[in-house]
């Protein structure tokens, strides 16, 4: 069974003094993989200059724009139509705890997933916060542990968009006790990696239908590698397993690989950024339903 979504990303930026030269990079395009397919995409930009794209080191589309015509404000938008393929509820037979542990500790496995096991600036928990780290019981299946971890982070943090910014690290989130989806995800990554479970940061869109937190902005969640199953998504902000409502744009080691918008600009003074996201589920066409 499939579901179709219309995804809209829109940003408006205002600068105190004119920007004389700029190169922007956006990672907002929905990805195409086995669970979702990009059917249609359209970009809009208020600045002169032609958008161009490249594939980043993790295989996702990054969109660039260069302009040398001075400006003090600009708008960028993206509208995409994405088809999600319904993922059946997990009916997999977990490996035995011994098999899981053996695989997680094997050299080839660790090398293959090295980037998702590494403690980056965002995913480091300092020693004085060691009591925040939870460890998997030896005989506990990885999947069960991660579900517990999802619940644990959800219950320990309070959702509050105010106190954090894009530079908040896992340990800073612990200090604050609250944060946004990005912070929940970094903490999940940090603890999963402490357990030597490969885990990656995912940036994308969440269908608003269910009144879930993280709808009007881009959302973030985690994907962990479960031995015998593969990558599996966890959303600690909502204490949910990832399903059809989650539309992926990109993954990486942490936020720094997925930041939706960045740029190198020549300007002085402050600037203000507004952005919003809209996800609408499309009516299923007659005949396509099983």
């Amino acid at each position: 069974m499939t579901a179709e979504y219309l995804i809209e990303y829109y940003t408006r930026n205002v600068y105190e003094s004119p920007v004389t030269e700029a190169l922007f990079e956006f990672i907002v395009t929905p990805a195409s993989d086995s669970a979702q397919q990009l059917k249609e995409i359209k970009y809009g930009c208020s600045l002169p200059g032609q958008l161009f794209h490249h594939t980043n080191p993790f295989g996702f589309v990054a969109t660039n724009l260069r302009t040398i015509k001075p400006f003090t404000e600009f708008e960028f938008s993206m509208i995409a139509r994405v088809e999600k393929t319904y993922i059946a509820p997990k009916t997999y037979q977990p490996l035995s705890p011994e098999e899981e542990l053996f695989l997680l500790a094997s050299r080839v496995f660790i090398i293959d997933h090295y980037h998702f096991l590494e403690f980056t600036k965002y995913t480091t928990i300092i020693d004085e916060h060691a009591n925040w780290i939870v460890y998997k019981q030896r005989r506990q299946p990885v999947f069960d542990f991660l579900q517990e971890l999802n619940q644990y982070i959800y219950s320990r943090l309070e959702f509050d968009p105010e106190p954090t910014n894009v530079h908040t690290t896992a340990s800073e989130v612990i200090n604050l006790g609250k944060g946004v989806c990005q912070d929940y995800t970094h903490l999940f990554l940090a603890i999963a990696r402490k357990n030597r479970i490969p885990c990656r940061y995912v940036s994308g869109y969440l269908n608003q239908g269910g009144n879930l937190t993280g709808a009007a902005v881009m959302h973030a969640w985690a994907e962990a590698f479960i031995p015998g199953l593969g990558w599996c998504g966890f959303d600690p902000t909502n204490n949910l397993l990832v399903d059809n409502n989650y539309i992926k744009a990109a993954y990486g080691t942490d936020y720094s690989d997925c930041s939706p918008m960045k740029g190198v600009l020549k300007t002085t003074g402050n600037h203000h950024t507004d952005y919003q996201v809209k996800v609408t589920q499309q009516a299923t066409e007659p005949g396509s339903q099983q």
């Binding site: 190169l23 990079e25 490249h54 594939t55 980043n56 080191p57 990054a62 660039n64 190198v264």
Partner: peptide, 10 residues
């Protein structure tokens, strides 16, 4: 040079 790594990877 901003963007040079993308040009390189392409």
């Amino acid at each position: 040079i901003p963007g040079i790594m993308a040009a390189y990877r392409e």
